[in-house]
C-alpha cells in the first residue's frame, strides 16, 4: 500500500512528540486504544485557564504510520484553538487532510477520540477545581 505524501511527512517528521505534566491542573490527557488492537494514542493539551485557548499539545502514539500521522496532525490543529473549537475537529477532516484510504479510517476515529478524551480530562479537572477551593 502506498502512503500519501502528508502521511509520510508526519511519519518522518512527527510534530509535537512528547509528554506534558499529567498532574498540572491545566493539562488534559487522553489515552485511547489498546495494545492488543495494535494502536494506542496519548494526546495531551495544555490550556490557558483564563482564555480557554490550547497553548500546547503533545502526543505519543503506538500504531501504524497513519495513526502516527493522524495524532501528529491533531496536535498541530489543536494548538491555538479554544477547547470548544477543538471539539469541532472531526475524523473526516483528518481523513481528507491526510488522504487516508478506507482501511485507515479507524486511525482518524482514534485521533478524534483522543482529542475528546484530552479535552474531557481537562474540563473535568477545571470543573472540580472551584469546588475544591470553596470547600477548602
Amino acid at each position: 500500500m502506498a502512503y500519501s505524501n502528508k502521511v509520510l511527512d508526519h511519519y518522518n517528521h512527527p510534530r509535537n512528540v512528547g509528554s506534558l505534566d499529567k498532574s498540572d491542573p491545566n493539562v488534559g490527557t487522553g489515552m485511547v486504544g489498546a495494545p492488543e488492537c495494535g494502536d494506542v494514542m496519548k494526546l495531551q493539551v495544555k490550556v490557558n485557564p483564563d482564555t480557554g485557548v490550547i497553548e500546547d499539545a503533545k502526543f505519543k502514539t503506538f500504531g501504524c504510520g497513519s495513526a502516527i500521522a493522524s495524532s501528529s496532525l491533531a496536535t498541530e490543529w489543536l494548538r491555538g484553538k479554544t477547547v470548544d473549537e477543538a471539539l469541532e475537529i472531526k475524523n473526516t477532516d483528518i481523513v481528507n487532510e491526510l488522504s487516508l484510504p478506507p482501511v485507515k479510517i479507524h486511525c482518524s476515529v482514534l485521533a478524534e477520540d483522543a482529542i475528546r478524551a484530552a479535552i474531557g480530562d481537562y474540563k473535568k479537572k477545571s470543573e472540580s477545581r472551584p469546588q475544591v477551593s470553596t470547600n477548602a
Binding site: 512527527p14 495494545p35 494506542v40 496519548k42 505519543k60 502514539t61 503506538f62 502516527i68
Partner: peptide, 8 residues
C-alpha cells in the same frame, strides 16, 4: 519507541 506511549 521515542514516539511510543507504551514504551514510556
Amino acid at each position: 519507541r521515542e514516539l511510543s506511549p507504551l514504551y514510556e
